[in-house]
């Protein structure tokens, strides 16, 4: 069954591509192999096939109703809308693309990157491999959410989803961009409940996405720059802590810190930090080999955290 349908779809594509003039529906049903049954059944089959081909991104042009066709429309696939056109690529560029397309080993982007590269490889460009790198990278696998969100973005449709967070569960968002930031996937968009631009981590989506049926519900400013909305890593807001480090220990902390004073049992270091919780965790990692001198809040936060373990 699937064989016959596949065969018919291929034959239909071939015929519509080969023709210079529009083919009448009656011509197609009569001449293209695979249309069988009553007139009604054939026509229904043809309608479905057209939709199927269009869903593959193939543009089927419908001919103007002119005197020749009377009330019968004509069809064809113009070569120029069907064929891949890319600016001339060099072998070196194609090689770069091949390496890049392998970055997504087994993720959701891999199949489309691979089929994209296959098409480029069908253009007859001789590949030259003169790169000495072929690294394997592994990342958080993009989920199928990406596909859905990018579709919503292109139709400018609002989406809603349940998000794992302390407060508001159900979110209504106008999606702007999907963001791959330092190894994780995010959605950035206009949060309709909070009336602000927000970031959402895709791994915290706890429900499927619902995409509004309506299109063009909002617009995205033309020069929208997602990077300005990321939490800033500002040198100016860095705080400093004074810490004692036991001799010959906590090498990592020593490596990133500034030695203030050497002692007998402990050396004193200054380390910079942005986020107190992150630093507390880093310091606890070194166990009883470090002792916080100041600031006071850091010290009490560390003590409180460690006490939490004993509860």
């Amino acid at each position: 069954m699937s064989d016959r349908k596949t065969e018919r779809l291929i034959n239909l594509t071939l015929a519509l591509l080969a023709t210079k003039r529009y083919l009448k529906k009656s011509e197609i049903l009569k001449n293209v192999m695979g249309y069988e049954g009553t007139q009604d059944a054939k026509e229904r089959m043809f309608e479905r096939d057209k939709d199927d081909l269009r869903s593959l991104g193939i543009e089927i042009e419908v001919g103007d109703l002119d005197v020749f066709f009377e009330d019968e429309p004509g069809y064809r696939i113009p070569e120029k809308s069907y064929e891949l056109k890319v600016p001339e690529l060099t072998g070196r560029e194609l090689a770069l693309l091949s390496i890049a397309s392998n970055y997504w080993n087994d993720s959701i982007l891999a199949p489309t990157a691979q089929s994209g590269i296959r098409k480029l490889q069908s253009l007859g460009i001789p590949v030259s491999f003169d790169f000495d790198f072929r690294a394997q990278y592994r990342f958080e696998n993009p989920t199928s959410l990406i596909d859905e969100i990018t579709r919503a973005i292109s139709s400018r449709s609002q989406i809603s989803f349940s998000y794992d967070s302390a407060t508001l569960k159900l979110r209504h968002v106008e999606p702007y961009r999907v963001l791959f930031w330092n190894g994780y996937w995010y959605l950035i968009g206009h949060d309709l409940d909070r009336k602000d631009i927000r970031l959402f981590k895709l791994s915290r989506f706890v429900s499927p996405i619902e995409i509004s049926k309506k299109k063009n519900q909002y617009s995205i400013v033309e020069d929208f720059d997602a990077t300005v909305h990321l939490p800033q890593q500002n040198i100016d807001i860095k705080r400093r802590a004074k810490i004692q480090v036991r001799k010959d220990s906590a090498l990592i902390l020593r490596n990133r810190g500034l030695l203030l004073e050497e002692g007998n049992e402990y050396d004193t270091y200054e380390v910079t930090y942005e986020n107190e919780n992150v630093l507390v965790r880093e310091l606890i990692w070194h166990g009883a080999n470090i002792r916080v001198i100041e600031p006071l809040e850091l010290k009490s936060s560390l003590i409180k955290t460690v006490e939490g373990v004993l509860k």
């Binding site: 991104g57 193939i58 070569e79 809308s81 069907y82 064929e83 891949l84 056109k85 489309t112 990157a113 089929s115 994209g116 296959r118 098409k119 480029l120 069908s122 253009l123 596909d147 990018t150 292109s154």
Partner: peptide, 10 residues
């Protein structure tokens, strides 16, 4: 000729 690339491929 190969087909043009889809949005998601590009």
């Amino acid at each position: 000729k190969p087909r043009k690339m889809s949005r998601s491929e590009m």
